[in-house]
Design a binder for these strands. Structure first.
Lengths: 339, 339
DNA sequence: CTTACTATTGAGAGCGCTCTCAAGAACAGC
DNA sequence: GCTGTTCTTGAGAGCGCTCTCAATAGTAAG
């Protein structure tokens, strides 16, 4: 790699001081127009790019944002949720001229090591953490260290102290269940995620409250909590079928696609025999057979909002913690049938 | 964030010079055991972590690796290929104590800007670039700047000058087609990707050579090139069905799942009426209906190999360019039937 | 014309680390 | 005991930038 030109070099070529060039780059109002023009001309001609390491060192801001996806998220492979989320985050980073560093972990041990190395070294200005199980052992440490941090997904504890963005899972699930009730369904099953996630808890809460509100009981034999995978959705559905549900609300589309497969194999018709509603509305929902009624959540937006929030924290301070809840939307397709 | 301890501070507490502490951290053989022990004790007690910005500036190595996924990759959302790849890359980075920065682009314009800002600023030590269309306009510039770079997927031009890792797409496709021929299939269709990708070209090449070798003609009416999406696989299959294929090799599992759906809807039985083979063997293949025979490619390994290669380049120099081709494996499931 | 400000620029001190170079210690050979 | 060699450590010069502070130029007020 050929030696690059530095601030110093630009300053000499333009016949000004280093400080002036720095001002031209960083402060839009500072330098006088004619001088500014001269400096900018040199910058363009030389293709000068500030060295980010030097800049970080001097200003103690790196313009790097870390995205942490904890080791306990298994569904990374299988669910299009994460790619969408990362897209949103990346796009917002590009827009704000931040750089995204991605931290994935494959074991708790690895997670601990990388936290130590990467985060305590002042490398990143702030972090976005995707929610995992409710007792992520590293989160409290980060909060204690006052590292600027935004969590994606409502935290389970310390809600007031942690900034987060989330979708309104409770009301989304409520609306899904409510829609099934309105369609005249009486035996509405629930295939949930594990209850050690707030997503799992909130969607279950919404489902329950819709049922109770309409005088239906939450039947334990129609309720299963499983992993967020297609295979688990399939297995859960198989377990529920013998109890004759006439509808099922599945907590993610990925799992719902598994459930659909189980229903097909059992010879049940969707929606004639049983209505199905999922949650996410990412790519799979519209192309499943039949197309899946689902609760759409704005995943990409979730990502961009997290970045926006984090940058706001970086610029205006950690306090007070910010909380944003994005709305969901019921997308009605063929899998739930009509009245 | 509370003021962190620096090298200087550690040096004072241990009663040695800055240089010695630096040696303790960076050179395993340098310092005398007793001194080293004293310094390490202080490091542990204080929880000292080197400041990465300072380290980058002084050593002009950042220990950051950039992963570039060009703007023209549409299938990022829909295909589990990229999540798997990123997993592999991330894992290797963690292992080698490198940090991964992710660059996704949503437009060519954005791509240009970020290249400028992030890559010319000396931020990353090297880059991993996933192959996109064959005329990625930015790649030549990177090569010219002699930025250490590994491409994932065979480059179309300058093969000799670019280091890359790839899977053996030609022989994988050859084996898939060959297997269909051995099963007695005569009208073997091909649903390919766009031919402006080397993946698209290579898998088509393998398919053609198997057919030709066995005296079958490559029938244009049985050949369609489409986008790497499920929807395009579905549409392509629909177009081919009227020409009565008795087998189809589909270039990705994602597209194959779309093709399966089209076949179902057309009332064709798989594998009785038509054999189907895909390519990838990521999550979808085993859980499709029927389970998909497919060419397994070691995607995660591809990612880790890319990182290993890049680090080797960083440590031992750009030349000569390295090339690694990983083998593929035909995984036989129900969708192709048996003799 | 003098004084009081304000806008604009330059000088220079770091930011926390690496790395070269030289000094000193330790040891061998004669 | 002296010279030559190697090993270990410290001193100090940067790396390329930001940012404070002082100097100067320019403007307004009296």
């Amino acid at each position: 790699m050929t030696k690059r030109i530095t601030l110093e070099g630009v300053a000499q070529l333009a016949g000004v001081s280093r400080a002036t060039v720095s001002r031209v780059i960083n402060d839009p109002t500072a330098v006088k127009p004619e001088l500014r023009a001269r400096v900018e001309k040199v910058i363009v001609e030389t293709g000068y790019q500030p060295n980010l390491a030097a800049r970080s060192l001097a200003s103690s801001r790196s313009h790097l944002i870390g995205l942490i996806i904890p080791s306990l998220v298994q569904s990374l492979f299988t669910d299009p949720y994460f790619p969408s989320l990362i897209q949103g985050i990346s796009q917002a980073c590009n827009m704000h001229h931040y750089i995204l560093s991605l931290f994935l972990f494959h074991s708790l041990e690895e997670e601990g090591q990388v936290y130590q190395r990467a985060l305590n070294s002042g490398l990143v200005d702030g972090l976005i953490v995707t929610a995992s199980i409710i007792n992520n052992p590293y989160l409290p440490r980060l909060i204690q260290q006052k590292i600027p941090l935004v969590q994606i997904g409502r935290p389970f504890e310390n809600v007031e102290q942690i900034s987060f963005v989330d979708v309104d899972n409770v009301s989304g699930a409520y609306r899904a269940a409510h829609h099934l009730i309105r369609l005249g369904r009486k035996r509405i099953a629930f295939i949930g995620g594990t209850l050690n996630t707030t997503v799992g808890i909130d969607r279950y809460t919404g489902y329950c409250s819709a049922l109770r509100e309409k005088g239906l009981v939450v039947d334990q034999s129609l309720t299963i909590f499983a992993d967020f995978t297609r295979a688990d959705g399939y297995a859960a559905m198989q377990q529920i079928i013998p109890h004759h549900p006439d509808a099922v609300f599945v907590i993610t589309d990925t799992m719902a696609v598994g459930a659909l497969q189980a229903l097909h194999e059992a010879g049940l018709r969707v929606p004639e025999d049983i209505s199905v509603i999922g949650f996410d509305d990412l790519t799979q929902a519209a192309s499943s057979n039949p197309p899946l009624t689902t609760v759409r959540q704005p995943v990409r937006l979730l990502g961009t909002m997290a970045v926006d929030m984090l940058i706001d924290i970086l610029e205006t301070g950690l306090h007070p913690p910010r909380h944003t809840i994005l709305p969901t939307e019921l997308i009605i397709r063929a899998s739930c049938g009509t009245m």
